[in-house]
Design a protein around this nucleic acid. Sequence first.
DNA 1: AATGTAATGTTATACTATTGCATAACTGCG
DNA 2: CGCAGTTATGCAATAGTATAACATTACATT
Lengths: 141, 141
Amino acid sequence: MACRQSGLQMTPLREAAVSELWRAERPLTAYELLARLSEIAGRNLGPPTVYRLLDTLCQHGIARRIESLNAYVACHRREHDHECIFLLCQECGGATEIEDNGLERLLRKQAETAGFEMTRRVVEVSGVCAPCRTAVDSDGA
Amino acid sequence: MACRQSGLQMTPLREAAVSELWRAERPLTAYELLARLSEIAGRNLGPPTVYRLLDTLCQHGIARRIESLNAYVACHRREHDHECIFLLCQECGGATEIEDNGLERLLRKQAETAGFEMTRRVVEVSGVCAPCRTAVDSDGA
DNA sequence: AATGTAATGTTATACTATTGCATAACTGCG
DNA sequence: CGCAGTTATGCAATAGTATAACATTACATT
């Protein structure tokens, strides 16, 4: 976890949160994370605790919020500061993070053309991921 | 409103909803719309009524949901079937709808490369719109 | 110990959305 | 017309998501 401390101090709670987000193979809602952390802590945490954790982690680029799911994932790609694109599978619930500089440029250009100062962007694609597609195919469904 | 009836029957409630979304110069939350429609109707509508209205309108491309605001706007550009890009101003709350075929192509290509079947996408840019930028500039702020 | 700051706890509440079932309105048809 | 089938709306309850406001704790510096 040491590599992630871009000025953020890693408390036990934050470590646990990051670790749970990593372990989950899909985005977790705040309340799902709340339940898992409560179990780990052996006591009931309150929603504000978890929302604060998530805010902090998101601000440091360690986690990301997925708007169309009201859920959160641990973020890969800490090296670059890029915002990313999510591919969200409707079958398995998985979230894949990708990146596209061309798309970035286009968005930036569009904003510029409109005289719009861009501070944040959300790009989320919903559909069916490759593994789930083949799974469905071989179902004969 | 006649031009919008792509197989959707226009009831008084739906007309009122569309009309309110149009009149608002920014996205409305479901509960904001609920309040306005209740006032118009002269009685209290329930949340399900409004959420059903919005679902229906969104399904017919008459309205669109903005994920990062939990809010809804009337949709321009009925001609094309394009999904669109929103520029969301953090100052005035306004939402501008734009379109970019290049971006569309890029997204589609990315999905394809990942073997991902895309059924829906969300592209939302937050920032400050041109009018608000000049307003802030002349504030000296 | 005294102070300051960051982190977490606690209670209550606000906001967003859906489920499930009841009723009403409209359509087509005999 | 009267009836069945369908679509739309009403309504009550509740689920799910998020924040405000304030109290407490933990730690660092002096």
